[in-house]
Each structure stands twice: as C-alpha cells, then as structure tokens.
C-alpha cells in the first residue's frame, strides 16, 4: 500500500521553492567574492598561464572575453546562467575545467563522508542506548566522559593522533592514502570521532526525555520489557532530533573534510580546494562553495522530509 501523506505534495513543492531561493541567495553571495577580491582577475589569469608581464592589450582582451567590462548586474546574471548550466568556469592557475576537476574528486569525498557518518552512527546509537538504559550508572558515565572528550578534540588533532598511534605505533595502514575503500577507515574514524561524541550526547538526552514521557510508562505498564520500551518507542521518538543533527553534521563535514583530507592526503574535493584557497584560485573556490551549498540544501530538505515521514504531527496542517 502506498503511504499517503496528507498535504505531502504541497509541502514538497513549497520546501523545494524555499530551497531554490536559498540557493539563489547563496549564489549571489558566492559570486560577490569575485568583485570583492583584490586584484584584477584578468591579470591573475594571464599570470597563471605563465605570462609574466601581460600587456594592457592582452588584459583588455581577456576582460572583454570574460565580460568583466560589463555592468555588475550583467556580470552576475551571465555567471549565474553559466553556473545553472553546470559551467563553473576554469581554474585561474592551470586553466582546467572546474566542474570536471570537482566531479573527478567528488566520489572520494563522498566515500569518506558517508563512511564517517555511518561509523559515527554505529558508535553513537549503541552508546546512547546503553547510556539511556542505565542512566547514572557506569555505562552512562563512561560514554558521557568519552563523549565530552570527543567533542573537544578537533578533527586535525584526532587525525594526527591516529597517524601517530595507529600508523606509526602499530604499523597499520599508511600515512598516504589513495582514496580507496581499504584506505578510508582512518580518515573516516578521524571525522567520525567528533560526530559520534556530539550525536551520542544529543541522542542520550532525547532518549531520556522520551523515557520521561507518559507514553513510555504506558507501554511499560502493559508489560513491555525495558529494552522494548527503549528501542521500539523511545528511539523512534528520539530519532527526529538526531536526524537534524546528522543534517548539521553533513554541513560540518563539507568543510571539515578539507582538514582531514589534507592530513591523510586523501584525493578528495577538500584537499583540492585547500590548495586552490592557498593559490587564491577563485573559480575553484566558488565552484566548491556552490557544490557544497547544493549538497547541504538537498540534505536539509531530505532531513525535513524524513522527519515528516517519521513524525505524523509534523504533517498536520499548522
């Protein structure tokens, strides 16, 4: 039977419009980096092509070609038009196509991010369940202590410590990774540690909140075991806040991956962007920002949709 969602279609189109508006607004902000950045883009590009001292004529020619001689609104509209069609322009430093370069590295970053999220959930959910099953006893105290530590350690510190202990100490894995599944565990663990810490703290609090509600007492009063009350009733109710935290975590990963990818020399988007930022290669940075925003907006939209699927009260017309 197909699950009918009352008002579901209306919500989706409305939310999609809002997401598009957000993307449009974000595109304006991201584009605005170009006129705001110091220096003449045409000169930067020519220098990047190896022309040491470009002549005024060369610069003028390129300015016309890039439509930098047009008015500011015209420049934005033409940039947006190309971006919508998937043309993210070319790198200032090596002239390569930004979209191709980003897409080439995207699978490695996606693999890293998905593994990190799965790993973090695989740690956080059992830890929180255990803590909520025995609140105030040793499993609770232990997980809370580790979680407090975990949310305090920045990912680059975790990465360095993992490299020091696991790779140098035990001789497992390698300091250089190639972006394959067998290599993904260490960088993913570095990213997952902080996420798992934050998520287990949040989920534990939501589970205890659900366990203080009358409906869980009601189920217990009908003879359900504590485990059933916790897993079948408290956990689904606590999953909506967790879902939103996972959405925020994706946002954090989109930036945070850059750090871990650099430490582990993971061949993903993040490391590519860090080197582009160092060289002030603006088209690459802008393309990355738009791609990250598109992913983040899509994830946020999915999180809202999933929450509505889980909690029927969110589907109720306000």
């Amino acid at each position: 039977m197909i699950r009918r969602i009352p008002g579901g279609g209306g919500w989706l189109s409305q939310a999609a419009v809002q997401a598009l508006v957000s993307l449009l607004g974000a595109s304006l902000l991201v584009w605005a980096l170009l006129p705001l950045a110091p220096g003449d883009p045409a000169r930067r590009i020519l220098e990047g092509q190896g022309i040491e001292d470009p002549t005024p004529a060369q610069i003028e020619g390129l300015r016309t070609e890039l439509r930098l001689d047009r008015s500011i609104p015209e420049q934005y509209v033409s940039w947006l038009g190309r971006a919508v069609r998937g043309d993210l322009s070319t790198s200032w430093t090596d002239g390569s196509d930004v979209r191709t370069e980003l897409l080439r590295r995207a699978p490695a970053t996606a693999l890293l991010a998905v593994t990190a999220i799965a790993l973090a959930l695989a740690i956080a959910v059992p830890a929180a369940l255990l803590a909520a099953r025995f609140p105030g006893r040793w499993p609770d105290t232990a997980t809370r202590g580790v979680a407090l530590l975990g949310s305090a350690v920045p990912s680059f510190v975790t990465s360095l410590l993992l490299l020091q202990v696991v790779v140098v100490g035990f001789g497992w894995g390698s300091t250089l990774t190639r972006g394959t599944i067998s290599d993904v565990w260490l960088p993913a663990a570095a990213l997952a540690f902080a996420l798992a810490a934050t998520w287990s703290r949040l989920l534990r609090a939501s589970l205890l909140e659900a366990l203080s509600q009358p409906y869980t007492a009601m189920v217990a009063a009908r003879g359900a075991s504590r485990t059933r009350v916790l897993v079948r009733h408290a956990l689904p109710n606590a999953s909506v806040p967790l879902l939103h935290a996972v959405g925020l975590g994706v946002g954090a990963l989109l930036g945070g991956a850059a750090i871990v990818e650099t430490v582990f020399t993971w061949p993903g988007v993040g490391r590519y962007v860090v080197s582009a930022v160092q060289r002030r290669d603006l088209p690459v940075v802008q393309g990355f920002a738009m791609m990250a925003t598109l992913v983040y907006v899509t994830v946020s939209l999915s999180v809202d949709g999933l929450s509505r699927l889980i909690d029927p009260r969110l589907r109720a017309p306000a």
Partner: peptide
C-alpha cells in the same frame, strides 16, 4: 501524552 505520537 500516553499514546506514542508516532504510531497510529
């Protein structure tokens, strides 16, 4: 309050 809000 005493019915699980997620279940029908």
């Amino acid at each position: 309050a005493s019915n699980n809000p997620l279940l029908n």
